[in-house]
Amino acid sequence: MCVTALTLVLGGQIFAGQAVARDYGQQGAVWPVIEPDLLQQIHARLQHLEKTGETARLNEDLKRRTIARVKRPAPVAGIVPASVMRRWNFDPTIAVEADIRDDKGRVIMARGTRVNPLDTVPLRAPLVFLDGDDERQVDWAARRYAGTTAKFILVNGAPLDLMKARQRRFYFDQGGKLVERFGIRAVPATVEQQGRVLLVTEQAIRPKPGQQP
């Protein structure tokens, strides 16, 4: 680039910079930005709740609701008393979705390998799903599995009250994850191992003579 051309370019940039820096004056009133401090607001709110006793009331209400949920969890939706026997096999086999490697990068289980958890971790005790508010179901399970290590799992009812009354441990299928997994729609239902599969049975209970169905 020649000296004359360079001079014109630099001169143009200088003039352009001067044009951008022009002072247009004040166009309107300006106020400082003032916002309340969020932490101070929260602190003030907490102090108010403490002084009025609202904090204690909220804590007591939370405690009461928590105890109620522990004593009687929300029932599993969609589960009904079994009216007929229904039985099927459940195969827990899964296919490995990706290569599993050891700490040295060696493949110890290739993608697509089929694995049955029962080969290494057998189901040592039957799982018995019950409506804890149905005394017939609880009586049936207590008689059939007396002296065994069967796990009684409720889909409805108060497990702590039953533990005290029956002197054995009761569990609860929180959120219905287990019955959904096994496809159970009615109780009482049992899950027992037979070889490399699980036998799932929904068992209808016949009422005793003179007993309401």
Rank of each mutant, 00 (worst) to 15 (best):
V3G: 00
R87Y: 00
D134W: 00
E135R: 13
Y24P: 01
A98C: 00
V179H: 04
G112P: 07
Q18K: 10
L8H: 11
F172Y: 09
R185E: 13
V20F: 14
W88M: 09
V3P: 00
L160H: 11
T120P: 00
R87V: 03
A141G: 07
G210W: 06
F152I: 00
G210I: 06
P126D: 04
A5W: 01
W140T: 05
E54N: 03
V96Y: 07
A82K: 04
T55D: 01
K51L: 10
H43I: 12
W31P: 00
G17F: 04
I67P: 02
I94F: 15
S83D: 07
V30K: 08
D134S: 13
E97Q: 11
A16G: 12
L118T: 07
M1T: 09
G105L: 05
T52R: 04
G17M: 06
G17I: 00
A98R: 15
E180S: 12
R196E: 12
I42Q: 06
L6M: 08
A16T: 03
R169K: 14
N116D: 03
S83K: 14
G53Q: 01
P126V: 05
L178Y: 04
V200Q: 02
F15C: 08
T4C: 03
A125N: 15
L8W: 05
V30D: 03
L62R: 13
V179N: 07
A29H: 06
E180G: 14
V155K: 05
R65F: 01
L10E: 10
D134Y: 02
K177A: 14
T149G: 01
D134M: 01
V187F: 05
I108L: 08
M1I: 11
Q18C: 14
H43D: 14
L38P: 09
S83E: 13
E35N: 12
L160W: 04
D161N: 14
L123F: 08
T52V: 11
G157P: 10
I100T: 04
V179R: 06
L178D: 06
